[in-house]
Design a protein around this nucleic acid. Structure first.
Lengths: 344, 344
DNA sequence: CTGAAAGCGCTTACAG
DNA sequence: CTGAAAGCGCTTACAG
């Protein structure tokens, strides 16, 4: 494979000059530029990113830090959509992406593995825990990064997230307007991330706005998997004072709940209303199609990557954190309770 | 960040020696080895993969060549499962994976983009077209790779695939045994890949074994998306002599067909039987759960990566291609036609 | 506008 | 068992 010397020789210039036309430096005469370009073409030359990485310049690879293990990641359609967004703009801009995942139970390892490579131009991180300790690793290395989700920094810079609070608020308000007052909640793992706290706030505020108080027996927890939604729903439905509606903090758990409801021979939405969160592609495919709060997952990934590329190329150091709207998508899994009446 | 000189200085040895303990070369005295290790520990040293890449030794990153654009890839649950397998064993072995995708309509670019980086230890490729030209790029560079799917080489080496022929054969045989003789086929894009040809062979052989001949009006094509399955099914159902069963070459198209059947007010499986291919996670979630041919997607990814790692580390040059079994998973979307009777 | 030379952080023969 | 030195393929000041 041809290297820069081969090109220089063929074009009868120095390697410095070749390097300059490669990086589009001005002040290279049209004439020599043309010669160099021809040589590059002829030799099918393309620069070694490894060498570039060493000299500390662009490598055109960005890291994607995923603090989960592969099995977790690939079973989460929402996360996958986020990654799709990242890959999409990276690809459009001729960047490659190096995915660094955690060894199970060691989220931090995803960060250190990435740093070790020593050649990423920047990174997009998926935040999980509030501590946000891991991203310090990137800061120390001076690697620009933008995080998707929350960061705990007092003023949240360089992150993009969805409006979890509003989304949850609207979901609950909608259910209340339909006539529900006993609303079961299937929360995510409590210690998990601040997005969930935001949603919890939204739920509580919506409830309070309508003078409804949240019966603690109505609050259950899952771990985002379908099975955990099934179990949580079972908990809810087996209690003596059943809820008439359930709000699950992601769609997979909502689908677990759906399955559980079916076993109780409860018709959705006639006997039980259900609202999810995320709006994963599968949400329209189930029966009935799921009413859910849409997070703009792909857009979050795209936006974060866009911003990262700006940081890398335009030398932007910091940007105000971006909060993308989460909106309620009304489909067919929620309706007025059949003994109540809509009071909107 | 500490480099190898810092370590050498602290341990009072040469960089060569540090390098040796790093690569676990024998013939390094226990004593100096210990000193070096301590220095590494103390400085939190970890070698720059960029530098390693330059010297032509291990970088611990493998490439994953995906000859599709991100939007295509991320909407294909089957491919995602394959990738999950790749990521999984890579991660277990402390390898990072660099995903190289194609710019739309230029499959080859995924290969060249990867090669350009100059620092992958090897690659797993997802084959699509029969030409298999693209992998020549890797061969020329001397990058070891294993391809998932078919390669056209006379004796197929270094690839792992599923037994498409058998899978399709069984699906059709099953339908025939249930009592169907008019079986509609929703094929993938015809020029697409040899896996489809294999399935076509399986279909034809199964049909012939029962002396049924394939009416050409029963053969339709889709492009693997749900919508295309919908359309193909529509074609099939709007003809005057409807099939009583449909075999789709992937699950997404089968789900599109399911939706279409619903609009025709056809009950599945009572009025129309449906068999898919792949067994994506969603297949159990739809109503009714889909009978389908399971491809061991994750296992294919795992196996390919395993083999690649052997090639890299054990210096294996070649292995007999591996064909993993595809098996029919019987669920609830196929049954005897209601005017027919099972004749098995 | 162009080039000579040093340097990025490793590894690899080659001596000793 | 250990180290000096060259080299991997670039880029970047610095001169000219």
């Amino acid at each position: 494979m041809a290297n820069i010397y081969d090109v220089a020789r063929l074009a009868k210039v120095s390697t410095a000059t070749v390097s300059k036309v490669l990086s589009n430096t001005p002040y290279v005469s049209q004439h020599t530029k043309k010669r160099v370009l021809e040589a590059i073409e002829k030799l099918h030359y393309s620069p070694s990113l490894a060498a570039r990485g060493l000299t500390g310049s662009r490598t055109y690879v960005i890291g994607l830090v995923v603090p989960y293990d592969p099995d977790y990641l690939f079973s989460d359609p929402f996360l996958l959509e986020v990654i799709r967004g990242v890959e999409s703009v990276a690809n459009d801009n001729d960047y490659n992406v190096l995915i660094s995942m955690a060894k199970s139970a060691d989220q931090r390892s995803a960060y250190t593995k990435l740093v070790r490579t020593g050649y990423v131009d920047g990174a997009v991180t998926l935040e999980t825990f509030e501590g946000n300790i891991a991203s310090k690793v990137l800061e120390e290395q001076g690697i620009p990064f933008v995080s998707i989700g929350y960061s705990d920094a007092p003023n949240r810079h360089n992150s993009v997230s969805a409006s979890d609070y509003t989304g949850a608020y609207e979901a609950i308000s909608y259910l209340i307007k339909l006539g529900h007052s006993r609303i079961g909640i299937i929360c995510g793992p409590s210690h998990f991330m601040s997005a969930l706290e935001e949603r919890m706030r939204g739920i509580n505020d919506a409830l309070q706005a309508h003078a409804i108080e949240l019966d603690s027996s109505l609050l259950t927890y899952g771990d985002f998997t379908l099975d955990s939604g099934y179990k949580a729903c079972n908990e809810l439905l087996s209690s003596e004072n059943r809820p008439t509606a359930i709000f699950a903090m992601n769609d997979r758990m909502a689908m677990g709940a759906m399955r559980c409801a079916r076993e109780y021979e409860l018709h959705i939405p006639h006997d039980l209303s259900l609202v999810g969160f995320d709006d994963i592609p599968m949400a329209v495919l189930v029966e009935p199609p799921l009413t859910t709060v849409r997070q703009p997952a792909v857009e979050m990934g795209r936006c974060a990557t866009q911003k990262l590329l700006e940081m890398i190329n335009a030398d932007v150091r910091e940007f105000e954190s971006i909060v993308l709207p989460a909106e309620l998508i009304i489909r067919s899994s929620a309706a007025a309770p059949h003994w109540g009446r809509a009071n909107s």
